[in-house]
Amino acid sequence: MATSTVAKHYTRILALWPKDALRPNLPFTRTIERRALPYGVTPVSPPAEPTKSSSKTAIVEAVAPLKATPQEESAQINALYSLLENRYAKKYPISPDVLKPASNPEHYDRLMEEIERAPGKSWWSAKLDEWKMKIRWR
């Protein structure tokens, strides 16, 4: 695989990668962009704004990315494509019983509802929900 082909694959992966609604400030695409920099891929997401807890991030960004050979990079590209295509979920499907445990059949449905509501919540509503979970209503 040539260097230009590697760059094209990384560009396509970055375009197809889903947005992270729960952590928009820490998307996985930044990791992919960091890996693709030596191949001439320009970053899609804006750089992270520095915060108090970003000292670890600053250390990671200070380290220059290593450029692997195009053959070694093809394994990384294949892994990213397999995640995009849900190959493992299709190859190893889980039983519906796993998502509906006898002890709490609605657990995962409620969890998915909460995850869908989370991006639109304010700090105050998130705290109220946290407190509600600590009180036993029954």
Rank of each mutant, 00 (worst) to 15 (best):
P47V: 09
V63T: 07
P47L: 11
P47K: 15
G40H: 12
E49I: 11
G40P: 13
R30L: 03
I32M: 11
T29A: 02
A62Y: 09
P65A: 01
T42K: 14
S54Q: 05
T31I: 15
K67L: 07
A58F: 00
E61C: 04
S54K: 04
S54P: 04
A48F: 02
A68V: 12
P38A: 09
A58E: 06
R34P: 06
T42H: 04
V63I: 10
T51Y: 02
A36H: 02
S53C: 11
P70D: 09
E33V: 07
V63L: 07
A36M: 01
P65M: 00
S45F: 09
P38V: 04
P46I: 12
P38M: 04
A36R: 00
Y39T: 10
K67N: 05
T29V: 01
T69R: 13
I59D: 07
P38K: 09
R30Q: 04
L37Y: 03
E49N: 15
K67S: 08
P43E: 02
V41M: 01
P43Q: 02
P70C: 10
A68G: 07
A48R: 10
A64W: 10
T42V: 04
R34Y: 12
G40I: 14
V41G: 01
T57Y: 06
R34M: 12
V41C: 01
S45V: 15
P38G: 07
Y39V: 14
L66C: 03
T42A: 12
S55Y: 10
V60G: 02
S53A: 13
A36I: 03
Y39F: 13
V63F: 05
G40Y: 14
L37S: 11
A64I: 07
T69V: 05
A68E: 06
R30T: 03
Y39A: 08
